[in-house]
Design a protein around this nucleic acid. Structure first.
Lengths: 220, 220
DNA sequence: TCTAAATTTTAGATTTGACTAAATTTAATT
DNA sequence: AATTAAATTTAGTCAAATCTAAAATTTAGA
């Protein structure tokens, strides 16, 4: 089945939101897609009619198995294209997101499988997020927010929770990228800001908003 | 400026048609885009308002300089993607067209210039058609239809005039591809069919419709 | 618990691109 | 030159996706 770019964006967004909240609300989706709640309601009805969404008026909603399947394939495409842009076309990882937002809607299944092979079946995209395989399977690595890890632990950056260009530019500036090894030196309860040490760098300070969006895996 | 996929398709189609006929008609475009003449008229008005088209009711139309510029950039994208699909993703040249029809509408200028560099600035696509450069310049090689070359001349296939999958499948079957050296052995005036010789192959017969769409350059 | 606030949905418009059927203009033919 | 045929345009609809404003429902606070 083929879906419009707009529908695909709704599916993808709902998928991401329900990973956190379980059940998703109209306002949430509207904020995420920069649209109006009324427009979201309109689309929910269409997605329900196509059996992609479990939805009852005023009760919130979530994807059906089929809806999840479609969403995962779009995420697969998005992340493979991001990988391609960075690895083959030397894009900066902070600028690939919006191009991938367009490329993810190209429909050819063969194209994406060939691209996957061409790239040697990468496991994660340049932001550290896992890339689903042909069957839609992917390992959700055990990771947590930088905010939540204890003092004096070292951890390695595994993903970035926000793809906004501003956020990525900030990280670029602070020399934080996927794979960077970090030790939390100090926490300030007043504003939940952190001081970090990265090898060969002076101490770095991060605000709560930023730290929240940096996902790390513990180093063994 | 950014244009809808639909508008881009109109611009591209009108560009191709006016290469042949100079001035273009509503029916021609409708046939080419598999749509209705009334829909074409609707779009003509929009393109005129955007100064992409020179158009007066009932009088035919052609692209403005700006319209031509936009069309050429779309053609550049189409042909670069075709080249990528064949050279890097091992697609068969007979199946790349429809995928490229989607990819050509991805808007990022940076993407296409980086892709161009990644591919080493190819001059022609897998069908032998020239690829415009960043500035929109491209050499239109001197070529003619296989129908028009004299008996016992050898020529090399330089482009295919029709991109239909059926046509390309037929050529595949007859072992005719870009670069194939051909000698015309016989012409039958009754139906304008031809008999050809290709090295290491038995004699091949082609109908007028097929031969018309095979473009060749004379071998020096 | 009852009301106010927040959330969500409905109703009615708008835009883009397409369609059918009918009218208009141009071209062709007798 | 007149009439038929072909090409083109207009008028009126339609579907997808969006919007605003208003109504309905749920939730939360006094």
């Amino acid at each position: 089945m083929k879906y419009s770019a707009s529908k695909e964006n709704y599916l993808k967004t709902i998928f991401h939101l329900q990973l956190e909240s379980g059940i998703v609300g109209t306002n949430e989706v509207a904020a995420s897609l920069q649209t109006r709640p009324a427009s979201v309601t309109d689309m929910l009805k269409k997605l329900k009619k196509e059996k992609l969404l479990i939805y009852e008026k005023y009760k919130g909603f979530k994807l059906t198995t089929e809806g999840r399947k479609v969403a995962i394939q779009i995420i697969r495409k998005h992340r493979l294209w991001e990988y391609f842009l960075v690895e083959k076309l030397q894009f900066d990882w902070s600028e690939v997101h919006e191009v991938a937002e367009e490329l993810e809607h190209i429909s050819s299944k063969k194209l994406i499988d060939r691209l996957d092979a061409f790239l040697n079946f990468p496991q994660t995209d340049p932001h550290g997020d896992p890339i689903p395989d042909r069957q839609g399977k992917f390992i959700q690595p055990h990771q947590q927010s930088l905010l939540d890890i204890p003092l004096h632990t070292t951890a390695r950056v595994s993903a970035i929770g926000s793809q906004s260009a501003e956020m990525l530019a900030l990280l670029e500036h602070k020399s934080i990228r996927i794979g960077t090894k970090i030790e939390v030196k100090k926490k300030f309860p007043f504003d939940n800001s952190l001081e970090l040490k990265i090898r060969n760098h002076p101490l770095i300070t991060l605000s709560e908003q930023v730290a929240k969006n940096i996902l790390v895996k513990n180093e063994q």
